[in-house]
Design a binder for these strands. Structure first.
Lengths: 260, 260
DNA sequence: GGTTGACTTTGACGTTACGTCAACTTCTAA
DNA sequence: TTAGAAGTTGACGTAACGTCAAAGTCAACC
């Protein structure tokens, strides 16, 4: 039995162009080529094509399909790899779906173009690269998991809390209170406590680093300087002081209290 | 505040190439271009870029993002459309995952390259186009849903049953029994009953059409002619006879029985 | 002031798996 | 014979940038 290119294409539910393409990339050669240049395919071609199409359905790239079919690689390895990719992809899409859903809900709920809101506060998911670079993947994943576990209301509350803190820093800076003052250090402690929620333990280094990040990264400064130019720098300085002095003092104070 | 292209790229977690690309497609223009040709971006650019990246995260195409940001299209419409796409995509991937899993399981279970088996029998998912063209989308979806509802074992049994039928047709043809004979018509009825499982009601037309399909489509003939050349044609003829005579006779018989 | 290294520009090709012309030849049925 | 269907090769288009390449710019150091 022999089929023309169209016959085969229709039989297998694909197009002649695709068959020519497969021929070109060496995935499926015609069994015969007429002296007029026409391509002809036989039963064997059909079977191979069916395998190709199946593997393609499974999402394998043509190059991988070629390797699998030619047995240059054990098929299970390719499949297992592919399965992992599929699972991750489904995960990713699931998150996107949730994202789009909440965006949609809020947009419809009249909460203006919520797009802005996402960037308000502290969106943990946006800074993966930097965060993992600075504090390691593990810390990021903990924070991320924690963040995902929150309800929408909790997330909002969490964000609001740090917006309030930023506003208080702005007011303090505006009035001219020094960063070492008890008032400003109290605000700073609220920031510290707020951060502790995400990671559990906030080291002194982490805290100082974060402060530097505030001023180095325009996304952060934008959130703080909205309460007056220089608020970001002011906040960073307050954090530095808090980390270097106040915590030590508190530690000493706590120890004294315990031993007293 | 003003940023160079790299500054902005790093801040937003993307690349300078991307920013140039966005400029090229008219999605994000620099706020200023130095006389040296350098691109500079301001706070407004940053905000717009953040929106762009968010919408991109949600999976929207750049063209759509442009429309949303420029308000030429209400965002909810674009998002809703996109949500549908995402849901369908997740569905598709879910099916792929199941597919790969069973393929993997069977391949490991030593059932040879199971790829062949998928094409054995009657794979409902492979013929969507043709089937819907000939018998309408509704009929296809019914059949497809039914097929998906089966367990693996059921699927196998179902396939086996039709393989047996094909083999019996082959034997009958081999021995030379005519298609009108009771023996062959009995086999044909098994084929008819088997088909009834998929669609509920098998009309005379459907049955005849399917017969024609057997001989017109090499995928079908391959399954039948494996039991001897001409088995597909033989089967088609038997189906024609069954549809045109036997069923009428049965109907008459049934009516007589009821009225008698 | 020259050199080095980081940064910038435009331009253009590469990626994936074909779709879609275009220009031309060949087969088939009336 | 002639129209129409089907075949061929060749080449560009797609989405969203990645990745050179060649060349100009800028800041800092010796």
């Amino acid at each position: 039995m022999e089929w023309s290119i169209q016959d085969l294409a229709r039989s297998a539910g694909t197009t002649s162009r695709t068959l020519r393409h497969y021929g070109q990339v060496g995935l499926l050669a015609p069994s015969r080529i007429g002296r007029n240049g026409y391509r002809y395919y036989d039963q064997e071609s059909l079977v191979r094509l069916q395998r190709i199409l199946l593997l393609r359905e499974l999402g394998l790239a043509l190059a991988d399909i070629g390797q699998v079919l030619d047995g240059e690689r054990e098929p299970t390895a390719a499949l297992r790899t592919h399965l992992r990719l599929l699972l991750r992809e489904r995960e990713r899409i699931g998150r996107q779906i949730e994202s789009v859903r909440t965006t949609l809900r809020k947009t419809e709920g009249g909460e203006q173009l919520m797009v802005e809101e996402v960037f308000d506060g502290f969106d943990h998911t946006q800074y993966e690269q930097e965060v993992t670079q600075r504090w390691g993947r593990e810390a990021y994943q903990r924070a991320d998991q924690w963040w995902r576990s929150l309800s929408d209301a909790d997330k909002k509350a969490f964000q609001q809390r740090q917006l309030d803190i930023a506003a208080d820093f702005g007011r303090a800076h505006d009035v001219g209170i020094p960063v070492e003052s008890d008032e400003v250090q109290a605000i700073t402690q609220r920031l510290y406590d707020w951060l502790s929620l995400t990671t559990g333990t906030v080291t002194k280094e982490y805290f100082v680093n974060l402060g530097e990040m505030y001023v180095a990264d325009p996304r952060f400064t934008a959130n703080y300087d909205v309460h007056g130019d220089g608020t970001a720098v002011f906040t960073r300085d307050a954090m530095k002081v808090y980390a270097e002095f106040v915590r030590d003092a508190m530690k000493v104070y706590a120890e004294r209290k315990l031993s007293g």
